[in-house]
């Protein structure tokens, strides 16, 4: 993987952001969001291969596929909430960041409930 590519882009963008932050804070926020999106766009492409590998292994181990898809959904929500939260913190908007992360947690909780119910049913069936 080309870590040097990411490092180069980050450093260049860092200089540009600090140049713009002095006069216009809003440009710095937008630019940091775009750089984050650009780097993650490339990384998420790689992540797709990892996910197909995991699903293949899960099928081999006869794990139920919708549990696995829930796990990936939860990972996605957590990652996106973190992404937005960090950008808000960069712009010194901690209150906004906390609200976004709270929303992420609640969504994840909603996704986790069916899995919990399924586990409970299995456990109760044993006794």
């Amino acid at each position: 993987m080309d870590i040097l590519l990411f490092l180069g882009i980050t450093l260049v963008s860092l200089v540009l952001i600090t140049l713009l932050r002095r006069e216009y804070k809003e440009y710095a926020v937008l630019l940091s969001a775009v750089v984050g999106a650009a780097i993650m766009l490339r990384l998420v492409g790689r992540l797709a291969e990892l996910i197909t590998a995991f699903t293949y292994l899960a099928e081999k181990a006869q794990i139920d596929s919708d549990y696995l898809s829930t796990i990936f959904k939860v990972m996605g929500v957590a990652y996106l909430a973190g992404f937005g939260g960090q950008i808000c913190r960069d712009a010194d908007e901690n209150a906004l960041a906390l609200k976004l992360e709270l929303a992420g947690k609640i969504i994840i909780l909603f996704m986790a409930v069916p899995v919990m119910v399924a586990i409970l049913e299995i456990v109760l069936r044993i006794f």
């Binding site: 999106a37 766009l41 998420v44 996910i51 959904k73 996605g76 929500v77 990652y79």
Partner: peptide, 19 residues
């Protein structure tokens, strides 16, 4: 300009994680 880039990023994440 930024929104276009972020929209591409969100579509990619949605496709990968199946959101």
């Amino acid at each position: 300009v930024a929104i276009q880039m972020i929209q591409r990023f969100f579509q990619e994440v949605r496709a990968v994680f199946g959101l």
